[in-house]
Design a binder for these strands. Structure first.
Lengths: 328, 328
DNA sequence: TTGTATGCGTTATCAT
DNA sequence: ATGATAACGCATACAA
């Protein structure tokens, strides 16, 4: 490998001068610059980020930890982050935790060793253990679509409970009264419970008592969506509308309905959550709660490198398509 | 930051000994090991990968370059790669090229500087320019779902032309004769042209002359799929079956049909390509050509670190679901 | 404007 | 079994 030393020799200057030129500082004549640039060119010199990082203690690399890479939510978020990351000269390494504590801990350790400049932690409840580790690493971290109760870590997310309330109320306003819910992970304090709470709150506002048989749990993913929908359709066949905690689960519901010959939205209305491309591709196109996913990624990056830590709750909205029928 | 030097002082040994212990070499007594381990624990020492990389010239990091992160193909592949990468202690950094030559070149440069241990190049034709750059970097590279004609770079892919031939013939065998195609990028020599060729070849085998009006081009993504399908449905309304060059385009076709009140598969049969989760989620569930995507990722990683460079063509298959109707 | 010298945190070679 | 020390490639404080 060719180093600045080689370049320096060839250009008959010191390594210090080469370094200055490479880093766009000043303190050299036009002439020497040209000589050095020429030497760099001829030798095919490439800067060594490892060495630079050793000196600066920076890697120009950030990490995104998420429970699953394969969901549309994850990939759209990743897309948002990656785009802006490249712009500011950061590479992003992906870490699929799979909700696995061991994998997460291993990753955190590796990231500490690699001296990443920042960590974006997505969709997963931040355990105290992780929190402490990261704090010791002395690396900035921001949470996306999740939050923490104890030590205040900056986050960017929407208000899940209000969003769910709005989604359910949307169904209510459309005249539905027998409304089921396809919930996410039961224990999940981030997107699980709050979304259920919003659903409950909306029902109560309209004087409807929530029933256990109208709510079925899954894990936000498609397959769990069809399973949960089948459970729901069995235990409460008179349901006229369903609020799903994710677009994928909503699509699972549509699949389950399709299998049983239940027409959507004619016999069953469905509203989803996320507004990923899945919602658009669905037949019928899915009415859903929109999270500004790409913007969340963008914002996370900003927060990560902003001076003073702060959190942001982004606005959500409801995108009306064709999966909800107006009753009466 | 605490270094081995600090550890050494605290444990009253030399840095050399600490290094040996950290790296599981031998040459120290049980007693000193315990002392050192204790010091490491108490000091909260973390290895510095930057420094290690500087001496070893390795980063334990690989890069995946792909034209888009947000497609299901990309994320499923990424999932496959990431899983195995973690197993062998490699982090993976993602590079979204967006088919943009400039971005790709920039990324390649950055990867060279970061001294990545390997590059996986996905879905995009490998320009000679890139090839030369990587060759100069002296970093192993493998191609996924693409290949190159000049300098032989190892690849893993399926046989796109045969797969398309099979898909088209599947339609033919089902009794269809007026078969349209929703093709990918026209100029794409990897998944564009070969898939069209396979389609042509199958038609000819059955004595059918391909017609221009029955083929519409897109870019493999959903929106282009609905546009292309609309074009096709306009120019050849008598079409009874469509072969789409990707699942997303197939879903686009279903959407277009749905908008026009054309029932799938009753009035129009559709077969896709990839077998991502999209195919499963579709209404009706999509019959499609299966690429073993996760396995391709896994294999790519193996090839990347295998002794002698070699290429692999993985088998494809047809997954029958409900989007194709048997005629007569 | 330019050069010298030191340190960044590790590994590895050579002694002891 | 253990230690001293020279790389690794670069940035930078200090001199000149």
């Amino acid at each position: 490998m060719v180093t600045i030393k080689n370049v320096a020799e060839k250009a008959k200057v010191s390594t210090a001068t080469v370094s200055r030129i490479i880093n766009g500082q000043d303190g050299y004549s036009e002439k020497t610059m040209k000589r050095v640039l020429k030497a760099i060119e001829e030798l095919g010199y490439t800067r060594n980020a490892l060495a630079r990082g050793l000196v600066s203690s920076k890697s120009n690399t950030i990490a995104v930890l998420l429970p699953s890479v394969t969901s549309r939510f994850a990939s759209e978020l990743l897309g948002g982050i990656e785009t802006d990351a490249q712009r500011i000269g950061q590479s992003v390494i992906i870490c699929n935790t799979d909700f696995n504590g061991r994998r997460t801990a291993d990753y955190l350790k590796m990231l500490a060793e690699k001296r990443v400049d920042g960590i974006i932690f997505v969709s997963e409840w931040l355990k105290e253990e992780y929190e402490r580790t990261v704090e010791r690493m002395n690396v900035p971290m921001v949470l996306v679509a999740t939050f923490t109760s104890s030590y205040p870590v900056p986050y960017v997310r929407i208000d899940d409970e209000i969003a769910s309330f709005n989604a359910t109320e949307y169904l209510l306003k459309a005249g539905h009264r027998k409304i089921g819910m396809l919930a996410g992970t039961r224990e999940d304090p981030v997107a699980g419970r709050p979304r259920v709470n919003g659903y409950f709150r909306a029902l109560k506002k309209y004087g409807i008592e929530p029933e256990d048989r109208r709510i079925a749990f899954g894990d936000f993913h498609y397959h769990s969506g069809v399973r949960a929908a089948e459970t729901l359709l069995d235990s409460a066949p008179d349901t006229t509308a369903v609020f799903a905690a994710s677009d994928e689960m909503a699509l699972g519901c549509i699949t389950a309905a399709h299998r049983r010959g239940i027409a959507v939205p004619d016999a069953l209305s469905v509203i989803g959550f996320d507004d990923t491309l899945d919602a658009e591709m669905a037949i019928p196109p899915l009415t859903t709660v929109k999270q500004p996913i790409r913007e969340m990624g963008k914002t996370a990056l900003e927060l990560l490198f902003s001076e003073k830590p702060r959190s942001i709750i982004l606005p959500h909205s409801i995108v009306e398509r064709e999966s909800v029928r107006r009753l009466k």
